[in-house]
Design a binder for these strands. Structure first.
Lengths: 196, 196
DNA sequence: ATAATATATTAACAGTGTTAATATTTCAAA
DNA sequence: TTTGAAATATTAACACTGTTAATATATTAT
């Protein structure tokens, strides 16, 4: 009974791995049951022995990518000093991650991952992810009297919206045209908000 | 030769009308060539006699909706005094329009309307639409020395990102859960930006 | 080795956009 | 008004999509 467990988990892993490769590479539009199964080395119907449907598989991918994103940002930011500089660094790294993998941005913010059991909670995790990453830095700011608790409450959402909006227009609509421009605009925005 | 013109335009109109109804009602996910043609009272292949492909038809819908949105906002705002109050009213009306028709929001900001001739320019029109609506009000603010030209340049993008991000999370991810909450958050954000 | 169970695969269905071949309608000339 | 040509509409088909039921193949226990 325990070997079953590990075997099943391994099989799921093959499909998840395949799906993640496609999402990272070609993006969400190239995802299909047959495509994933091919890459995993199985028939398309086999996937349904391990996942309720395609959505369930994709949800597992989302969780994985979220952890991956957290690691990426944490690694890039640890040396930066706490407070405002840390927040700026987190936002930069966060954007960098999604620009590097546009398919993951689409997966997180664009695709209508339709209703399922744990859908709502996972969607909430995505919506508050950047916020969570900045949590300590915000606390630091409050303790240092850099911002009031009230202002922080507003600024958190403001930055979340600003970053998501900026990424939406750049990744999805090529506005602005270059990544450099995109970052420059973002820096201006965040400086306007945080430097006072 | 002129009757051909008017006939063709009329036929296109039938399909556009049908597509717009579906987009307004069921949203983008319910759009299909057969669905549109059914509603227009023709076979699915007939559509291809008047549009290069489905994308072309949808692009025409986008243009229509954009004009419609402009009219909606203008109508709701004309009595509001110029400057900051006008900007706030415009943003409120703009959000209201898309909340009323979530399918149109998806069409404008979510769907990957893939490459075509006039794609880029149309996408740019969408990205700058809210900006255009606020244009006069911003000029008024500068003339009254309420904001510097520099700050206005930043604030315009900030508001565009804030509104789009807020709508993305609300319409697409149900965050926050109620429209009232959504508006309240938005008001806080915009007040923070514009009241000084 | 055989019977029972678990797993993998193929076939099929209803849906999608799109095109080519056909059917129908429109309309000008005889 | 009838005939022939051009324009327009429709059906059939293709390659996709997700998903399920029926079938084939492995694995395991007796």
């Amino acid at each position: 009974m325990e070997r079953k467990e590990v075997q099943t988990r391994r099989m799921k892993g093959y499909f998840i791995q395949a799906a993640k490769e496609i999402l990272r590479g070609e993006g969400f539009r190239s995802i299909s049951v047959r495509n994933i199964a091919d890459r995993a080395g199985y028939s398309y119907a086999t996937l349904y022995n391990y996942f309720k449907d395609l959505q369930a598989l994709i949800f597992d991918c989302v969780s994985d990518f979220q952890d991956e994103c957290t690691l990426f940002v944490s690694g890039k930011v640890q040396k930066t000093q706490q407070g405002v500089p840390r927040i700026k660094a987190i936002v930069r790294a966060y954007m960098q991650y999604f620009v590097q993998y546009p398919g993951i941005f689409e997966l997180f913010f664009i695709e209508k991952l339709s209703d399922s059991g744990s859908r709502q909670s996972l969607m909430e995790l995505i919506a508050t992810h950047l916020d969570q990453l900045c949590s300590d830095a915000w606390d630091f700011c409050v303790q240092e009297n850099r911002f009031s608790r009230e202002d922080v409450g507003i600024l958190r959402i403001q930055i979340r919206n600003m970053v998501t909006g900026q990424l939406l227009f750049y990744i999805h609509r090529r506005t602005p045209e270059s990544y450099q421009e995109c970052v420059e605009v973002m820096e201006k925005q965040i400086n306007y908000l945080l430097d006072n």
